[in-house]
Design a protein around this nucleic acid. Structure first.
Lengths: 358, 358
DNA sequence: CTGTTAGCGCCTTCAG
DNA sequence: CTGAAGGCGCTAACAG
């Protein structure tokens, strides 16, 4: 029978943590021996002391204090991650990969959400440093290191994820935005869409958005039969989004219309807007979005997406840290993955319209 | 012009952190004075020393080492959170609320994902303790404290979120599952559905699932005109889910059929299954799910949900910690919120059928 | 108002 | 193979 014990802070007050001293006393050895036992230098200990220490540790339920260890050794086994927007499923997916990789290598992940606020981001960077994290994975919202204070002489290695950071040369893991966007745009054109719009949140200098937008227009330029423009706005402003999309839908154009969205958040807002506008999804309009979403298959005939290998991105980011920890001082690595086009109904035009466009 | 500086670990090696000693030396005062400055006891300092310290700190870009502070003071300003499933949008939403509350109170949140693995959960509990977190917010996957090792004599206050933990009397924040389920089930019956199924992942003793299931049957018992049963299965086993739902759809029943799902993850899987079965959403079947989802409005005529006040839940959890830290030792608090029914098309039966059921 | 002294819990020389 | 001594960076008495 297990007793009901409260943990309302009362017990915490009296129950001090067991320290290395008490283990040493209980085992009748010195702190040094216990420390050696903990530090993986058991081979230096005699069988007798080793067993004795082992027994005492178990008996007292001892756990070394990582703060103290970190203070002394500098190794905290802590990895920090700063996420620009924790509500973005993409970020969560990447974080999931990183979390798994951390665990596998005995690291613990400390998550911070900057909420796309540079001040918060800078603050967290400092906080993480003050906790002596051994590495940082940064989904940056600042565009330039100039706005990130002393990041340039940060203690621990930093890996950027998804977005680049100007004036800061460090490892980076992300998507091959150019190639992936070309794939996406070409797919729309191949499917017979002629009047395209690239919808994104305000570009704001984010490398990801800029690159995708540039590649979109690059592709268009090679297809004179097509029209296309960029719609950069606050996608949470439903009224504005509705107005702009209605314009797009009603204006004359080069032919069948389709939307390319820059990420999953935009895909959601655009879908809702199209719904509000009374659009038939996806007969009146095509839709292709970056980022795979768990509900992609459920909307109308399904939304075609460019899926990012989020898990691999997480693993790769952790791998960058591991290499740096191992002493690798070579030039910064830029690892980019190719997005995977998942074709669904939203870019498959009904046969009736096919001819009209041909 | 900002120089490109690499942070590939090389610079980190030579650049040691500035310590309190160096600040003291630079300011020509003692460590104590600097410490007092940091610890918010500036009123004890003369204007001269205060300004001098301020200047030196700025000049050297000094940041106190939280590890060292924590070691000494016991205050780490760290809150740990263990999430059972980080891919569940509900958890993320709660975490978002907690994160905001932490930030507001000067705490930093450390997230760990147990992946519904008790071993991992126990491990993280120990790790968090070893980092001297000042409080833990636990979305538990273990059902009983008996499986959680020494949790009963944990140092820091613990707040449970969503799920209860047997043999462990501590603060808890969650949903009023009974009332919310009664609301949900009654709504289905009011709308004319007569043949109901409650779909859940294996109950596995999770309090949330158990309570909702119990309340479902409780409500049914007061409506002899209705039929209903529980379908507990691995919702990721698409084949099994499809089979069971097909049975449900084809079997004779007491009238119009509807599904009640126990959480957002199940809602997603059920939606996909119904899609695979060629169901017309939501003419052939009604659907009501716990947890609001960002895409609720987009599926067919929209999915009716019971929305949880996730943000408030997060705030409340943090509030529990704040109270315990403030010295509150009263009995454990159980805070439950009422779910909000958001009626959409998935529980609005088309007029043609209305009569048939009447 | 200020500095000196003694640790927090652990690891790491340096001698046995 | 083992232990004693010193210090990581900081705070908390205790004296001035």
């Amino acid at each position: 029978m297990i007793k009901q014990v409260d943990s309302t802070g009362l017990s915490a007050a009296n129950t001090k943590r067991v320290t290395i001293n008490e283990v040493a006393r209980d085992a009748r050895v010195s702190k040094t021996s216990v420390s050696r036992y903990l530090g993986g230098e058991r081979h230096l200990l005699s069988d007798g002391t080793r067993d004795q220490i082992e027994r005492s540790i178990a008996k007292l339920d001892y756990q070394p204090n990582q703060m103290a260890r970190g203070l002394k050794r500098g190794r905290t086994r802590l990895v920090g991650m700063i996420i620009a927007d924790i509500l973005n499923p993409y970020s969560i997916a990447v974080m999931h990969g990183i979390e798994a990789a951390c665990r596998q290598h005995g690291y613990t992940l400390m998550i911070c959400n900057s909420n796309n606020d540079e001040r918060a981001e800078r603050g967290y960077l400092e906080i993480l440093q003050s906790y002596s994290v051994e590495g940082v994975i940064l989904h940056a919202c600042a565009r330039s290191a100039a706005n990130l204070g002393q990041i340039v002489r940060y203690q621990a290695p930093i890996v950027l994820v998804d977005r680049k950071l100007a004036n800061f040369d460090t490892d980076l893991v992300g998507l091959d935005n150019y190639q992936s966007t070309i794939t996406a745009t070409s797919h729309l054109i191949d499917q017979g869409y002629r009047d395209l719009v690239f919808v994104t949140e305000a570009l704001q200098g984010f490398s990801t958005r800029l690159e995708r937008e540039a590649a979109f227009h690059l592709t268009l330029r090679q297809h004179p039969e097509c029209m296309g423009f960029t719609l950069a706005l606050d996608v949470n402003d439903a009224e504005q989004l509705d107005r702009e999309l209605r314009n797009f839908l009603t204006n004359d154009g080069a032919g069948p219309k389709a939307v390319l969205t820059t990420n999953g958040v935009v895909t959601l807002q655009v879908s809702q807007s199209l719904r509000r506008l009374g659009c038939r999804l996806f007969e009146d309009i095509g839709l292709l979005g970056f980022d795979e979403l768990e509900w992609s298959t459920l909307i109308g005939t399904g939304i075609t997406t460019i899926a990012q290998p989020t898990h691999d991105i997480g693993i790769a980011a952790m791998d960058c840290l591991l290499r740096r920890w191992a002493g690798d001082r070579s030039a910064s690595r830029h690892i980019t993955f190719r997005g995977q086009l998942l074709v669904r109904g939203s870019t498959t035009r009904p046969p009736s319209e096919q001819q009209q466009a041909a």
